[in-house]
Amino acid sequence: MGAKYSYLPPFLLNSYMSIIKVENLVKKFGNLTAVNDISFEVEEGTIFGFLGPNGAGKTTTINILCTLLAPTSGRASIFGFDCTKQSSEVRKAIGIVFQDMTLDKDLTAYENLVFHAYLYDVKKSEREPRIKDALNFVDLYDRRNDLVKKFSGGMKRRLEVARGLIHRPKVLFLDEPTLGLDPQTRANLWDFIVDLPRKHKVTIFMTTHYMEEAEVCSKIAIIDNGKIIIVGTPDELKKTIGGDVIYIKTSDNKRAKLEIEKLFQVNVFEQDSELFLTSLKGDACIPEIIRALGDSVLSVRLQRPTLNDVFLKMTGKEIRVEEVSSGDTIKEEVRSYRRKFDRG
């Protein structure tokens, strides 16, 4: 499913090129090992999500990839350029939205982008149109002459994303792009983050600890205590849980139980006068069940495992307890944006 967010045509999807390569990367600060022997690859045109709790080593990994930190050992390369030895080639190819704000608050939105365009040596004839495009893209064109210190958190974040794209990077790093934003703004920001690979031909490497955000990634790496625990598409990760759970209510549960067990060769359980079974392809089973049972079906519902379940299973802990309760609205919003995206 993640492949949908690629800008490459489908026939090329299987011949992706790895744009970021990380091999046995280690970073120690004194005797604290922030990144502990991680390896992964990111394919061109995808959204790669780094999911992990506070202090997991996400930002440290980004800092190494974007040439700000030297690794203790191991290798990281972008487009084949070594992040330590060929830093200027790497710098040209990447754009970054840091976890902390890095705008000049005493300059206007427009001036911040001009500053960036000059730093990256954008051609004179390209400067104006690109800056204008970028401001329009994040809906800040009308506010271009306001000082950044007058902006809200969401506006600053959007401006930073716009800035990161001015020099047309091949890879865009987003370190917790939606941290500290209200659900509405977060969803808005997501609206265009998921659009980026197609619209701007850019590969995205993002970190987050919001499960809902990780759902839209082409691939996710779960990191905890400096180690990558598992890498895969959101669906692959969820399959490690053992699949979807289907709940069925019928007018004759005994007969239904026998029918379904015969149909799928699985155990069906009954709880609170509701039958349930697990299946790797829950959505595909439902029509078959209904066909087999006919009119006796009263209700069917499907419960998908969440990334939270995956994280819980892999690390034995919730990724961030306080987020779970407030997550529902966002989940809904992200879904609605995904629906919109799928249509478009």
Binding site: L68, R91, F98, D121
Partner: peptide, 14 residues
């Protein structure tokens, strides 16, 4: 401290 230095340091500028 307020981060703009990072923006300057990741730019392809010697």
């Amino acid at each position: 401290e307020f981060g703009l230095m990072k923006e300057i340091l990741v730019a392809p500028v010697s």
